[in-house]
Design a protein around this nucleic acid. Structure first.
Lengths: 337, 337
DNA sequence: CTGAAAGCGCTTACAG
DNA sequence: CTGAAAGCGCTTACAG
């Protein structure tokens, strides 16, 4: 076990220059061609690479972004995680990952840990941040952006899709398809996305002169949503259900088909939210509102970079609209193609 | 923007003790009750938390584990990632994540980056490591464990399921079910798991006196596997296909059902590998060999901790067997329940 | 352009 | 138990 961690000191000696010189060529500061050559040669020979942690200590930048994530069983998140990691990697940043239970409590401790690592920024995927933690991040000058989650705090940047508008669109679609008994299995009503989608949906229905027949909170859990669907069908079965996200919608479709023997969309129309890759699979062909995760990740990275460069930059709440993707799980109104 | 990063120096002043004293109480070294109280009080008042990076510089431990991951679209990996993160978090470690393309090249650059962050250990999920990088990690005294991937190098720890044995079991099962035209859509033959499963399957078939009718490399890609299944059915359709992992198996089942109108298992039996959560969904009910990801993660963490504590500890190759989970996608032989 | 020196925020022998 | 001091591996003014 050699534990031979090479330092700039050793490279300097071998190259016959000062340690400062070595540092300069690796940090991109000015150095003569000749010095640079000698240093690179020595570094190469010794297998030297600068210690990022030591650099961070002095520059005050760790090039680490903390990511708080939950709900990994919902394909939307691994997908977003991969995009985020790639986007950040290409800019020289990396993700330190923290898994949270999602339902509150754990989150704070986890962000506390994050702060100890001197991260340059924090993004939380679909989880909120307490007031106290927000204050600490602000005090430490660490930007935090909420991804796919809104929170009414001017210190917190956020990137979401247009949940109200998207759900509204779904309501229009269902109304145009002449559905009359329309139900909603909502996303967790403790989250902004769950509430906004429910709100937009009700508004859209009202605008079409329809009532919401029934609404149950699916808590963003597959099993809870499936049970809710079954419950809804015990009497006066709805002819359409808008499910708060695709992850739950798959569970709902499975329950309807395999427990109740219903045909989709003949017996009942189902619409989801997210458009995760699985929604396109032949087994589901789920009609759903696409959350443009690529653009959402882009916006997240932009916000992060902007605030890392200029801590005083204005905090923005970005809302990105997404299209309704028509597939086979819901009756398509004439003319909607 | 306050950027008020509180240091131990400031806490010391407020508490009326030396900076060393502050350090001692936070690093768990000896300190009198009285000193500890004063320090904690001052720290609390100022919102002080030790800078982990500065600590790392001197202790030589970052408490960061580098994770190289790919194939996040295969539910097995987000699931394992979550388990790994939780297990590590509970021991005071965190994951710095690096996404690799999976198919080789990118991996090396990524691990190089990892080394710069002075990680205490590296785990690669289903990706291999070049000889040069292995040498560097060894030189730097950084343990690396391959998760769900084997590689014939004594310096690399690995944790896999018993792929040969598992696939062998599947062959027995299919043979006992009186299947006669048995095909295999393998995992990527450039990976140890892909090769081991194919090998075990052939061996098992041979032991039962059967031949492998056909074998196509599915590359661990859904679309490739689906196309392979269609191709296999153009003539002399197999009566059973063992697909190299669940992720591909879902694509195969979809293609068989929706493109060819086949019934599963009546028309053809399908067996997968992994037992990801989705395999239990009613839409698939996939018979599959379970990779015990919980135990695999445990073994991975154990190996990591062992080598971090004692770099000279022997490098182990752990193989964990998993059970065949009988569901509805393949004809079940009498007596197998 | 280059080297000597200070310093980032800690931990850890070393005396007392 | 406690404080002064050295040092982890770098970056960055500061002179020359």
């Amino acid at each position: 076990m050699a534990r031979e961690r090479i330092t700039s000191q050793q490279v300097a000696k071998r190259a016959g220059v000062s340690q400062s010189a070595v540092s300069r060529v690796f940090s991109g500061a000015s150095a003569s061609k000749e010095t640079a050559r000698k240093v690179r040669e020595a570094a190469e020979a010794l297998g030297y690479r600068p210690n990022v942690l030591a650099r961070s200590l002095i520059t005050g930048r760790s090039r680490i972004i903390g990511l708080v994530v939950a709900y990994l069983e919902n394909q939307f998140y691994p997908d977003a995680l991969e995009r985020l990691s790639n986007a950040l990697q290409s800019r020289g940043y990396h993700i330190l990952i923290f898994t949270a239970s999602g339902r509150g409590e754990g989150v704070d401790r986890v962000i506390q840990d994050l702060l100890d690592y001197q991260v340059d920024g924090i993004v939380t995927a679909s989880v909120g941040v307490s007031d106290e933690l927000t204050r600490r991040c602000e005090a430490a000058g660490i930007p935090v952006v909420l991804f796919n989650r809104g929170q009414d705090d001017p210190r917190l940047a956020e990137v979401t899709s247009d949940n109200v508008g998207g759900a509204h669109k779904i309501a229009e679609f269902l109304a145009a398809g002449r559905h009359r008994r329309i139900a909603h299995i909502s996303g967790w009503q403790g989250s902004s996305t769950g509430r906004d989608r429910a709100q937009g949906f009700r508004d859209g229905l009202a605008a079409a002169g329809l009532d919401l027949t029934r609404e149950i909170d699916g808590l963003y859990q597959r099993d809870t949503a499936a049970a809710a669907a079954l419950e809804m069908c015990r009497q006066d079965r709805p002819d359409a259900i808008f499910v708060g996200n695709d992850h739950m919608a798959f569970g709902v479709m499975d329950a309807l088909r395999y427990d109740l023997g219903l045909k989709i969309p003949e017996g009942i129309s189902i619409v989801g939210y997210d458009d995760v890759p699985m929604a396109a699979w032949p087994a589901y062909k789920l009609t759903t509102l696409r959350q443009p995760s690529g653009r959402m990740v882009e916006a997240t990275v932009e916000a992060l970079m902007k605030h890392i460069e200029d801590p005083a930059a204005p905090v923005e709440k970005t809302k990105i609209p997404g299209p309704l993707i028509l597939r086979g799980s819901a009756r398509i109104p004439e003319g909607w193609t």
